[in-house]
Each structure stands twice: as structure tokens, then as C-alpha cells.
Computed example of a mutant assay.
Amino acid sequence: MKIRTSLAVVRAALDARAAGASYVEMGRLAGVECTTARKWVLFAATQPEGWPTPADIAAQAAEDKAKAQKRARNAARARSYAKRRYLAGGAPLMVSSLGTARRLQALAALGWTTIDLAPLLGVSPSRVGHMTTGMYGQVFRSTAARVAAVYDELSMQVPVDPEETQRYLVKVHERQRKMALAKGYAPPLAWDDDQLDDPKARPAVEWRPRPPTRVEVLEEIDDEAGTVVDACARLKVSRKALERWCLRHGLNELYSRLVARANPDRPGASEHLRTAS
């Protein structure tokens, strides 16, 4: 049974009934119909003795107080919204979050993390993450303006990871760039700034970076004085498979240098690959 009346009133009515009061007198005392008072008596018979207890009454009072405070906060928020709407000349205070999400995604593609952006926007890192993913369909106009200002300031700056830092902070910006690329976040140069808020606008078609070819990877490892072990680990192939591939593509000398670095003390390590049988 759902009782909407204060349990303190119910307790007083039940005490009156125990003292010999009729249902009519109970109803008059509690301010309810006599049929409601009768339902209380029947319901009390199914509950533990002494219901409602002082603890039940205190719990209900605390719950009612919390609900009243929530209603007061909501009313204050509504008054604040109406006031700001009036001061804004009647313009809507909420705008689409599309442009905000695109700007934050573009900054993420450059490597800016939520921890970097949170103090600039005056919100928590989790809130930045929610706005980046477009969780909110709308944002306050003031929030969209702050994001746009930060975007204008950072859109041409690429954050650089320090050479030495705490372990859990190593290459955080590089990791952010990889995560943004995996999620399909377009960088600032892929967008026309005037179209970021246009739902019909799309980023440039060729904005995704081209993955390096196997030859480019091997040449980069060679320039960095890497070994054949580094090449196999980066390309995720076996040493025998890499050897055969280099033989087929005329990269004998490059492969020989990688092998020589891996076994500098081995006789003949600097010689070219044997001719494929």
C-alpha cells in the first residue's frame, strides 16, 4: 500500500483508533476520508507491531526534505535560465552541440587531451570527454563560445610530449592522436572553420594519413640504425619471410645492413644476401 500521508499523522490516527476512536474520528483527525483511515488499520495489521515506528517516520521526513530541496534547486535553476534568456535578448541559451563536438574532436586529433582542455574550458575532464563524443544533444551558448575560443587558440598548435616525464604520462599526446585517428576524428585542417557548425558539412576527403609502405618502414628503420629484429617486430613478420620479401623486391643491401647490425661480431655479416636458390 502506498501511503502519501505523513507517517507521523498515520501514527497519531492509529493511536487514536487504539484508544477507541471510530474510523470517522480517525479520518477527521488525519484530514482524510474514513475509508482511507480503515485501510490504514487493515494495512497496519499486516506490518510488524508498532508500525510506523519512529525510525520509519524519521526516514520519511528525511526523504521529504531531500525532495523539497531538489524542487527548490530546480525552481532556482528555472529562474536563472529565464533571467539569462531575458538578458540575452530572448535568444535561446542552448545550441546544437555538433560544432562543439567537431572542434573538440579536431583538437583531440592534434593530440590535446581532456586533461589539457579541462582547465581552459572551466569544466571537468570527464565533461570534456562527453562533449567530444557528442553525448549532449545541446550545450549552453556560453559553453560553445568557450570551446570555439579555445579551438581558435590551439587549432594550429601540436602538443609535444616531454622527453622525460612520469611513466604514466609518457607519450600521452601521441597516444591521444592514435586514439583520435582510430575513432575517425578529423583534424582542424580537414575542416572549413565556417562550416564546423553546419550539419551538412563534411571534412575533406583526403584528410586521413596514408599508412607508410613496407619499403618506407624498412628505410626508416635503416636510417635509425635499427636491426632486422626491429624490422620484424614492427612489420609483424618472421625473419625468413622478410628475407624472401627483400630478395623479391631488390632490397638485398638494405636487408644485409639490418642483419649486420643485429650480429656485428658475426663473420661475413656485412656481405650481401645469398642469391635465392
Rank of each mutant, 00 (worst) to 15 (best):
T100I: 00
V158Q: 12
R103D: 04
A109H: 01
P119Y: 10
A118N: 08
R239I: 09
V205Q: 09
R102P: 00
R175Q: 15
P209G: 02
K200W: 09
P162N: 07
G137C: 04
L169W: 13
A109V: 00
R202Y: 04
E216N: 10
Q138V: 13
Y168M: 15
H173D: 07
W207I: 02
G122V: 02
V172M: 15
D197E: 10
A101M: 04
R167L: 11
D161V: 12
V215P: 00
Q195W: 08
E163I: 14
A241R: 06
V95Y: 07
V229Y: 07
H130A: 13
E220V: 07
K240I: 10
P211S: 14
R141V: 04
G99S: 08
L120E: 03
A190H: 04
V228E: 02
D230W: 04
K171P: 03
G137Q: 08
M131C: 09
R103G: 02
S96K: 05
R210M: 12
R167C: 01
G134S: 09
P119N: 12
P125S: 12
A204I: 10
A149M: 06
P162M: 11
H173K: 06
I115Q: 11
S126R: 15
T113K: 02
R102W: 02
T143G: 06
P203S: 05
P162F: 10
W207R: 04
A241Y: 01
L154P: 02
R177K: 13
Q105S: 06
E163P: 05
V229N: 07
A190K: 02
A148S: 13
R102G: 00
R177D: 06
P125I: 08
D194Y: 14
A186C: 13
Q138K: 15
A109F: 00
S155G: 00
A241L: 06
P187T: 06
T132A: 11
T213Q: 07
W191G: 01
W191F: 10
A144R: 04
L121E: 10
P203Y: 04
A186R: 06
E206P: 00
V147R: 03
V147K: 03
T133M: 11
A231S: 11
W191S: 03
F140N: 09
M131A: 13
V147E: 06
K178R: 13
H173T: 07
D197K: 06
A201F: 07
T113N: 05
E219R: 15
Q138A: 14
A186Y: 07
Y136E: 05
R177C: 08
G134V: 08
L120P: 00
A109I: 00
A145G: 08
V158P: 04
V172Y: 06
A106M: 03
L110W: 05
E206D: 15
E224G: 12
A145Y: 10
T113R: 05
A144S: 14
V170S: 12
V123C: 14
A204C: 13
G184N: 12
G134E: 07
E224R: 15
G137P: 01
D198E: 09
A149P: 01
P212R: 08
D192M: 11
L121T: 11
W207E: 05
Q105N: 05
V128F: 05
V205W: 09
T213D: 09
A109Q: 00
K200Y: 10
T165S: 09
L154C: 03
L117S: 01
D193F: 05
S96I: 00
D230M: 09
L117A: 03
T165V: 15
A201R: 06
A145V: 11
K236S: 12
R141Y: 01
M179T: 15
D230H: 14
M179W: 11
E163Y: 10
